[in-house]
């Protein structure tokens, strides 16, 4: 990949109180690529993506999108740069219906009124594009299955032409069949040229989908490897011991520390 990266996060630092959540972490992501972020609980995966999605500000470090340095102060800024996040807890308002969730914060208006019909019609289009059927769009998402809810969350991201998708444990709450569906969605979105950060506990999940894997341990980047060039055991060693296998990628960041 000699092209310019879609996203580059350089030397990100973040501390909560006295605890260093992230120290000198550098990751990048290309268009049409899935990068897996793995590590134990508290390794800093979620903090890292929350900085990219505007939930937290970094203490220091720089973020580049298409080679241009950007400042992301809040979720709105992130969305402005085409960054969409699908959170682990789905971040859906259970009491609202699918269109309300898909358009939350970016409603289609008719004067001062919400244009509910237009949002319903657009929602149906985007869910059809994901090949996921939701029986009733006017029902609160509380009554939808896990897979359907995930589709609503993804639909919400792609409707606004996200270029960078952050998926935090997208299959954690799903049954095997629904997890497969989400896997299909990831392939589909990748094929459409999106860059995807995939965060997962499940090493098999990451191996199935990711082109490259960045491993974090206690707030530091252990390294970034090409999925095709390593084994699951190599990655597990990185996660647990924090040491690189022999064959790291040439342009990968060096182990922190």
């Amino acid at each position: 990949m000699e092209r310019q990266p879609l996203v580059e996060m350089r030397s990100i630092y973040k501390a909560f109180g006295g605890v260093h959540a992230l120290e000198d972490v550098t990751v990048d992501l290309y268009a049409g690529e899935v990068v897996g972020l793995v590590g134990h609980n508290g390794a800093g995966k979620s903090t890292l993506i929350k900085i990219l999605s505007g939930v937290y500000g970094a203490d220091s470090g720089r973020i580049f999108i298409d080679g241009q340095e950007v400042t992301i102060r809040n979720p709105r800024d992130a969305r402005g740069h085409g960054i969409e996040t699908i959170y682990q807890n789905l971040a859906l308002a259970d009491n609202l219906d699918a269109p309300a969730n898909i358009f939350l914060g970016r409603e289609i208006m008719r004067g001062i009124s919400l244009n509910e019909d237009a949002m319903e019609a657009e929602s149906r289009k985007v869910l059809n594009r994901l090949r996921i059927s939701v029986p009733s769009l006017r029902e609160s998402v509380l009554n939808l299955s896990g897979g359907q809810r995930q589709a609503v969350a993804i639909g919400r991201a792609i409707y606004f032409n996200a270029r960078i998708l952050i998926m935090d444990e997208p299959t954690a709450a799903l049954g095997p069949q629904e997890a497969r569906q989400v896997g299909e969605l990831i392939k589909q979105l990748k094929g459409q040229g999106l860059g995807i950060f995939l965060i997962s506990h499940d090493i098999h999940d990451v191996f199935d989908h990711a082109d490259r894997i960045s491993v974090l341990k206690t707030g530091r980047l252990v390294g970034t490897v090409r999925t095709a060039e390593v084994t699951k055991d190599d990655v597990l060693t990185m996660i647990i011991a924090g040491t690189l296998p022999g064959k790291t990628q040439g342009n990968a960041a060096v182990a922190g520390g």
Partner: peptide, 14 residues
């Protein structure tokens, strides 16, 4: 209603 349903989701949605 969004705040009542999921305050976190509301905040993440800007």
């Amino acid at each position: 209603f969004a705040i009542g349903g999921n305050p976190e989701a509301a905040r993440f949605s800007g």
